[in-house]
Nucleic acid binder design. Structure first.
Ligand SMILES: [Mn+2]
Ligand SMILES: [Mn+2]
Ligand SMILES: [Zn+2]
Ligand SMILES: [Zn+2]
Lengths: 145, 145
DNA sequence: TCCTAGTTAAGAATTATTCCTATTTCTTTG
DNA sequence: CAAAGAAATAGGAATAATTCTTAACTAGGA
């Protein structure tokens, strides 16, 4: 079950709670439980449709964008021009190690905060809002030494 | 003029030197000289066409991909799903500060190498190849305090 | 000069994402 | 509880960036 926390978060930030959005949230939550591999819009739609057959892909995209704007999900850009999403767990912040072979994503807790601080000082004409840090490599299965 | 260095690099890595490729290299070089704003494929094509009218957009994409694979250019992914390219200057390594308003890109010399080292140790089952680090914010013009 | 693998142009195709619009549904207010 | 307005949705069309297909061409080595 989705923790009430998320539903409350939605209300708090003034986002209407429609059944479509609940189902999408449910899918993201289940994914987070099942190991944290981020999902793309297509996959979200497929999962949601098993319970809510009529949902449109556009709604999935729109909802994921809304959730991203509201800080409920994290939108990740991949090198193949695709986007995948993951639920933001309150109080957590992490980055990723992405396999260039199979696309497998592993979380890393390290974050270059110190550098971000330094940049804030050196480039004070920029108002810093966000950052991304991704390491690419080959996982055990994909590496060919 | 493009330094011979690049032409030699191409030969060294076994990439045929066609006139199209020379022109693309020239454009990238001029851009690098003119402040380092990365360019997208469309822009490269427009610039090249002024001297080499027949070039196809596909060739530009193909060449940029080849150059990227060979370490001659750097391919940057943006949040709007677009890609932009910059010439790799021998012995330099840098990251970017990107304005979420206008897309303006500023280079930052700081790199989270220490973290990458730590990740190499902790996640030794991954063979690390590459990394990206980008900070997002609003530039002086775009910030609305 | 000849040969051939690698490269190109042109346009079609693909893929992910967004837009359009009529309809529906939350949520608030009376 | 009913009505009204704002926001969200479905469905399909549209867009934009990129990639594919194929036949013709060419760089660079023998
Ligand atoms: Mn994650
Ligand atoms: Mn740069
Ligand atoms: Zn971070
Ligand atoms: Zn770096």
């Amino acid at each position: 079950m989705i923790p009430g926390e998320f539903i409350e978060h939605l209300k708090r930030v003034g986002v209407r709670l429609t059944p479509q959005r609940q189902e999408i949230l449910q899918v993201l939550w289940e994914r987070a439980q099942a190991g944290g591999q981020p999902v793309n819009a297509e996959e979200v739609m497929k999962c949601v449709r098993s319970r809510y057959p009529g949902i449109s892909l556009d709604t999935v995209y729109r909802t994921l964008a809304t959730f991203t704007r509201k800080g409920i999900v994290n939108e990740l850009q991949f090198k193949d021009q695709s986007r995948r999403y993951e639920l933001v767990i309150q109080g957590e912040h992490h980055h990723h190690l992405v396999c260039l072979g199979c696309g497998y994503v592993r979380e890393i807790a390290y974050c270059p905060v110190d550098i971000i601080e330094r940049v804030k000082e050196c480039y004070s004409d920029f108002k810093i809002e966000d950052h991304s840090f991704t390491i690419y490599g080959y996982c055990a299965q994909c590496r060919e030494d």
